[in-house]
Nucleic acid binder design. Structure first.
Lengths: 106, 106
DNA sequence: ACAGAGGTACGGTAAACATCGTACCACGAA
DNA sequence: TTCGTGGTACGATGTTTACCGTACCTCTGT
């Protein structure tokens, strides 16, 4: 099995959706972690998201639907990739400002 | 009567609070409107927030508690002011990126 | 063949949130 | 003094959301 989960085009993603997705501490932490890694995909299991499995699934879906990540199922596990350039084109500077605020201790 | 409503210091405001406050369409519209005006205070009644009075009160409180505005009660009406510089110091670039995304039609 | 790891889907629960109506308050104008 | 305007506070309601357990799936390693 090798299934790319459906994601919206970035033009269909609203600013409200993006902000809501990033407002959650756990989800934002995951995105910040992704930003600090190489641009390729990474195993979902490699992120620190100390919640029940089904809750993690939920959070990945929210991030997908907000246009922040793509996700590929490999049966055994799944992998996520930050949609860095697309997201940046749609919401210029947003991820950077969030990273900056995080570094400032917010 | 002339009462300045209490607001948190910007250092006590979390990024989650700020993002949640800005994720709401109506509240974000008000902030964008404020950004386009002169830096002084403006009457609450001068903003387009087509909701019940008690709902508007609620939204202003959320914006206050997220460190985005100060509010002064004058008995007759009330006035809000964008905490532009303070917010910018705490969350650099955030308001700008939101304005940019808004101008891009998000 | 079977167990374990990493997931999804579904159903339920509790908390948070947006919204409203009502009652009430302060001021300005007729 | 009475009315209209622009608010706040409180209580209620419906929806969204975060979270979990359970059942089930797929692949890997023994």
């Amino acid at each position: 099995m090798n299934q790319e989960l459906p994601v919206p085009g970035l033009n269909e993603v609203t600013l409200s959706e993006a902000l809501k997705a990033l407002a959650d501490n756990g989800r934002r932490a995951v995105i910040l972690d992704l930003m600090s890694r190489s641009p390729e995909e990474h195993p979902c299991s490699s992120f620190d998201l100390p919640k029940a499995k089904s809750t993690r699934t939920h959070h990945w879906r929210v991030l997908r639907e907000a246009g922040l990540v793509t996700q590929r199922e490999v049966g055994n596990g799944s992998f996520v990739r930050l949609r860095k350039d697309e997201f940046e084109a749609r919401f210029p500077g947003l991820l950077q400002s969030i990273r900056q605020a995080d570094m400032n201790g917010a």
